[in-house]
Each structure stands twice: as C-alpha cells, then as structure tokens.
C-alpha cells in the first residue's frame, strides 16, 4: 500500500487544473548496521570535530562556508540560505509534453503516486488523455523548499510524478569520449544472434532481493554461534580480443 500523503498541490497547464496529493511510490528495505567501538561495543555517534581543538562542535557553532580560494570561505548564514529557497507554491506547472519514453533513464529520480484531491473527474480525464496521446508532461514545482523538475506520467489508470535530475548534474554519455573501434560484421551478427537467444520479457517479480535474505540468514547463523565461512570474490579472466569470435560462437552453441 502506498505511503501517506506527503504533499498537496495542483497540476496546472493552460486550461488544465487538477488538485492532487503526493504519495511515495518506493520503499527501500535494507538491513541496518551500527558502527560500534571495538573495545566495548558502545554505539558510536557521528560528530563534527574542530580540527584544532579535537572536540565535537555542537550544531549551533557550525557555520556553512563556500570555499572561494584555498582555506578562504564566504560564510553563508542560515537566513541568507533561507532567502535562496524558492517561494512556496502549490503549483505543479506543466510546461510541455513529450513522447512517453523520450526522457533518457539517466534523468529519473524518485517516483510519487498522485491521488485526486477532491473531485476525480479532471484527474481521470488527464490520465486518460496522457495515455491516449502516449505523452508525459514536463513540469516544475516547489516542495520542501526546493525547486523540482519532473515528469507527469500516466500510471495504471491514474497519474504519477517522477522527479528528474537537472541537466547540469547529469554527465552526458557523449562526454566520456570513448574511442571508436571498428568491428567485423560477422562478430556483430553472431553477437546479435546470441543476444536474441538470451532475450525474454521483463519480469521484475522474478528478481527477489536475495541478498537481503542471505544477509538475514548470515545474521541468524551468527546468532546461533555458527562460524561463517569466508568466501573471497574472484575476478574472472577477460576475453582476449583475438578470442572474441570463438567465444561468441561457443556461447551461441551453449544456449542454442
């Protein structure tokens, strides 16, 4: 079941005005560890230490500095920072619509479900319109003192809002400037054949978080006082460039 309401706003675009409530769509599970002091297993706490006094500095004595030159800082106080936060607004403003699937996966942040706030007719019509046009809305809004950039998408028979990362945080694949290496067509052909053999539908339910289970198992065994066998990870030997073709052939034989 989706989490509780975390924010309320209204989707706005020209004549469209749809009030909604936000709910988390993701809940991560992970085994929590604590950091302990070796000698007495006391739980440790993270603190900020002054380099010269070697003692913890309480939050009220901490200042934020922007380093303009080595060891030289512009101090920014909390009120000034407050002023830089965007003005509160309840508007999810849709600026344009793009084809569904056009946004590169690298941009996607976190997803939220939207629930109609009040009358559902506008909400349902918008969800259906997005679905039929196979589009998603590119929008901006302000939430928790931050400006967000996101995609408004149809989801099931409802609506979903996914945050998007700002372009200046995303490293474009092109900027990595990998060298181009020519490949013989026969290797490509056999590679394509191999991939087709190994292809299937995406079934996310097939993948359980086994690691989490195995970790829990390890903890249970430790609890019973069992000794844990240490297994070392190994790196597998890379395929030599001149062996690529025969390795592909052998792979194909194996799966066919």
């Amino acid at each position: 079941m989706a989490g509780g309401t975390i924010w309320k706003g209204r989707i706005h675009c020209g004549g469209i005005d749809v009030p909604v409530k936000l709910h988390s769509a993701i809940r991560e599970e992970r085994v929590q560890f604590h950091l302990l002091h070796k000698r007495d297993n006391a739980k440790l706490r993270q603190v900020m230490i002054c380099a010269y006094e070697q003692k913890p500095v309480p939050a009220e004595e901490q200042a934020k500095g922007y380093e303009v030159e080595e060891g030289k800082y512009l101090i920014v106080d909390p009120e000034e920072l407050e002023h830089t936060s965007p003005k509160e607004s309840r508007l999810i403003e849709v600026h344009e619509f793009v084809g569904a699937g056009e946004v590169d996966p690298v941009f996607f942040g976190r997803a939220y479900y939207l629930e109609p706030d009040g009358k559902a007719s506008g909400y349902l019509a918008l969800a259906e319109a997005l679905r039929e046009t196979e589009t998603e809305g590119v929008c901006t809004w302000t939430m928790r003192k931050r400006s967000w950039f996101g995609a408004l998408q149809a989801s099931g028979n409802g609506l979903r809002l996914s945050t998007l990362r700002y372009a200046d945080e995303v490293v474009p694949a092109k900027s990595l400037e990998l060298a181009k290496i020519p490949l013989p067509e026969k290797e490509l052909k056999i590679g394509i054949e191999l991939i087709n053999q190994l292809s299937g539908p995406f079934q996310p339910e097939k993948f359980e978080n086994e690691h989490q289970k195995k970790l829990q198992h390890l903890i249970d065994r430790k609890a019973r006082g069992e000794k844990i066998a240490i297994l070392r990870p190994r790196r597998i030997r890379p395929t030599a460039p001149d062996k690529l073709f025969e390795t592909l052939e052998a792979s194909l034989k194996k799966v066919a």
Partner: peptide, 11 residues
C-alpha cells in the same frame, strides 16, 4: 572558521 571534520565519537 576552522574546518570541521566528520568523526565517530564514543559517547
């Protein structure tokens, strides 16, 4: 204005 370091502290 001396820089602060993140350290673990035993209470």
């Amino acid at each position: 204005y001396s820089p602060l370091r993140r350290k673990m502290f035993c209470p």
